[in-house]
Amino acid sequence: MATSKSPKAILFDIGGVCVLSPLEAIATYENKHSVPSDWINYAISRSAPDGSWQRLERGEIKMDEDFFRGFNADLRNEKLWKEFHGSFRNSKKKLKDVANPTQLGDHVSLKAEAADSNPTDQDRGAQQPPKPQDESPARPSLSKLAKDTTIGDPVSLESEDVAQSSPDGSASATEESRSSSSSSSPSPPDATSTLISLPPLPDIDGESLFWSMMAHSRSPDPYVFPALLQLRKVPTKERPILAALSNTVIFPSGHPYNRLNDPPESDPRGQFDVFVASAEVGLRKPDPEIYKLAVEKLDKLDKEKGGSGVKAEDCVFLDDIGENLKTAQGLGMKTIKVVLGKTWRAVKELEQATGLSLMDERTRRSKL
C-alpha cells in the first residue's frame, strides 16, 4: 500500500497485531472440549453491545466473579444457540450473514480475521521451532477463525481485528456435518424440526477459556512487534508518532498481566507515544468516537512538539478486524489489514507506507 507521503502517525491494534491472536486459543478450546467451531466467537459477538465482554472492554464492570458469571451466561444463551444452530442447518443462511462482525476485542487485545490456510513454520517466525503435529481431530482453518469480531487486547488492559475486505464478514458456516441431524435442504428448517434436533448447549468454563485467551495473547508477534521496535529506534523527529488504539480490559490490581514488571523490550505499552485503551476511555472499536479521540491526542502531541497537527488522513492504522478498519477508512485513515498467520505482509506494507526498513535481512530474504 504505497502512499504519496509518509504518515504523521501510525496506529497499531494490539491483539492479533503486536501480539498473537487469542482466536487460536479459542480454536484449541473448542477442539479440546468438542464445542462446535465458531460458537464461542458467535456467542460473544452476538451478545453486543451489552454483553459481559463488551462491558468489560469499556471499563463498565470489573474483572471479578460477577463478570465471569455474566460471561458464562453469554456463552450459554439459548436464543443465540438456536440461531447459531439454525445458521449451520440452512445452507443459504451463512454464519457471516447473521454474526455481528465487530465485537470481540483486544487484550492488551483479542482478535480476528485470517488467512485461508494455516501459517507455515516460516510464517510463525524463523526463531521459533516447528510445533509438533496435532493428532487430535481436525481443527478449524484460520479462515474460519478470522471473523470480523473483536476480542481484546491485554497489555494492562487486555483484550481485541476490512481494509479491503467486504463489510459482510469473512467467515462462512459450512459445518453441517457437526450435527447428525443436519439437513441438506436449502430451505430453512421449520421451528419444530429445529427444536427436536437442537443439540444441548456446550458446557463451557468461561473463566478457564478467558485466561487461556489472555495467556496466548501475551506473546509478541514475530514480525509486527520487531517492526514496532525498529520504528522506535528511529529518532523522534524522523519518524511518525507511534500510537496504540486497542480494545482492552483491566486486570485486577496486582495481577501479573498488568505488565508492570515486564522488561521494556517485551511490553507493548512501552513502545508508544500515545496509547488509547478502550477500558480506560469508556469507548471501544469500531465506535468512531474512539478513533476521533485518538486523533485528538495525536494532534495535541504533534502541536506540543512544534508540528502543524495531525488529522485522520495523516494516519495509517493497522488492525486484524475488518469492521475496525472499515471505520478507520470512513474517517479518512489509510489502513493495513493484518492477516492471521501472514502478519509479515503487513510489515511490508508498512515499509512501503513509511519508506523505512522494518524487517531484518534474514526475514526479508525468506519472504521475497
Rank of each mutant, 00 (worst) to 15 (best):
R69E: 15
D267C: 10
L298R: 03
G307Q: 01
L298D: 02
P101C: 00
P119R: 10
K8C: 11
L195G: 12
G16W: 09
N247L: 00
D97S: 11
A99Y: 03
E83P: 00
K337T: 05
S184D: 12
R89L: 07
T354R: 12
D262Q: 11
S37H: 09
Q54S: 11
N77Y: 10
K233G: 04
A146D: 06
K111R: 03
V347C: 13
W344V: 14
M213G: 08
K348V: 14
D273C: 02
I250R: 11
K237V: 04
S187P: 00
Q352W: 06
L20V: 10
F210M: 09
Q122R: 13
T327W: 03
P202H: 07
N118Y: 15
R362Q: 13
K8F: 11
D148C: 10
E265K: 13
E175T: 09
A279I: 11
E238Y: 04
L242D: 05
S117H: 14
L293Y: 01
D13N: 03
S217A: 14
S366R: 06
E351N: 08
G59S: 08
L104K: 05
S165P: 03
D190F: 02
L325N: 01
E349N: 13
S177Q: 09
A163R: 08
I14N: 05
E304K: 08
Q164D: 07
V347K: 12
I241G: 02
R269H: 03
S170N: 14
L56C: 06
S246P: 01
